[in-house]
């Protein structure tokens, strides 16, 4: 096709492109990385343990279940939704696992049933959001209470334990000196980063989060993507629940209470934009380690649990302000 040419038109058809150094450096993950380095330096001064990688890896096993779920939550938040029910999903799927095992089901089948419970819970969240078009924040506040309640009905007030010896203590199992849950975390990080960065699904997650209406008009199957993400949350939560069950060698209905906020904190600290469309797995990955170092560092430095909450809350607010400022600066 040839078009009419002589539009000797003025310049302002677009803003100037940003210089490359800005594209690379002015992004939220850089902030996360800087915080990580800063936290590491401070923590090393507080305690010589921090120069020991083994100590950090061991400490990380207390948080890594949350970190794994936070990776999937990153995708959900980029797509413009949120899921606040994962901690409750961890508890319910772990209770299903424990109750079925106790009732005499082979442990393998009980684990599969736990994963299936995760799928069903995620599906339920997803259907309420996608089919009934309800806001996900309200839906998942509702189901977080519902799932936790069901877990309590199922498990009562007691701990269910007495799992076979091989099932317990996965956090002490090492491969190349690295605890197995940490390896799971790294593998899932790489896989999700690849999906987000190089596949059509990943691209469409960003597009849906940027503008759902434009996505629909471009033929993107928005409902399918969102439903899939909520189901993935259920599965990840179930995996997190099983890892926790193994680490603690027992299951209670109040497993991971309040964990959803830690997960949101990791995603936010990693620079993912709370309104969707922007964010990265790398950010959440770095933020997970940041949190491990801060939490462990404060414990080592004998800072009271109550004061630790203040630090976490302040971090969350700072990260949201910084992320917003960076996005406002780079995208007019």
């Amino acid at each position: 096709m040839t078009m009419q040419t002589e539009t000797a038109k003025p310049t302002r058809d677009s803003a100037d492109a940003r210089p490359m150094w800005q594209v690379v450096l002015v992004r939220p993950e850089v902030m996360t990385f800087a915080l990580l380095v800063g936290a590491f330096i401070i923590a090393s001064n507080l305690s010589p343990f921090f120069s020991d990688a083994q100590f950090i890896l061991e400490s990380s096993t207390y948080y890594v279940e949350y970190s794994i779920i936070a990776l999937v939550l990153t995708l959900v938040i980029i797509s413009g939704e949120i899921d606040l029910s994962p901690a409750a999903m961890m508890a319910l799927s772990a209770c299903v696992f424990a109750a079925l095992y106790q009732a005499g089901l082979p442990i393998g089948l009980a684990m599969i049933a736990s994963l299936a419970t995760g799928v069903l819970m995620g599906l339920f969240n997803g259907i309420l959001v996608v089919v009934f078009k309800l806001p996900s924040i309200i839906v998942t506040i509702g189901t977080l209470t519902l799932y936790r309640g069901l877990a309590q009905v199922l498990a009562g007030d007691r701990s269910i334990g007495k799992f076979p010896q091989w099932f317990n203590g996965i956090d002490y199992r090492l491969i190349l000196d690295v605890p197995v849950p940490v390896i799971v975390f790294v593998i899932i990080s790489v896989a999700l980063a690849a999906i987000l960065g190089t596949t059509v699904i990943g691209r469409q997650i960003y597009q849906v989060g940027t503008s759902e209406i434009a996505s629909i008009h471009a033929g993107i199957r928005v409902r399918r993507i969102k439903l899939g993400l909520f189901v993935a949350m259920g599965v990840a939560s179930s995996i997190g629940g099983l890892l926790t069950a193994s680490r603690l060698a027992s299951v209670r209905y109040d497993m991971a209470t309040g964990g959803e906020l830690q997960m949101v904190l990791m995603v936010m600290l990693g620079g993912t934009y709370i309104f969707g469309g922007r964010g990265s797995i790398l950010g959440t990955f770095l933020a997970s380690w940041l949190l491990v170092i801060i939490a462990t560092g404060m414990t080592v430095a004998n800072i009271a649990i109550t004061a630790q909450l203040i630090v976490m809350g302040a971090l969350l607010i700072i990260s949201i302000i910084a992320t917003n400022a960076i996005y406002a600066r780079t995208q007019r």
Binding site: V200, Y206, H217, A218, I220
Partner: peptide
């Protein structure tokens, strides 16, 4: 509202309708 993905690149906007073309092997 219904056309552009405002904060995404021109490139990602233009290829939004043809995922099969830009990702022939996934």
């Amino acid at each position: 509202v219904a056309g552009i993905f405002k904060t995404l690149s021109v490139e990602h906007n233009i290829t939004a309708t043809v995922p099969g073309k830009i990702a022939p092997r996934g």
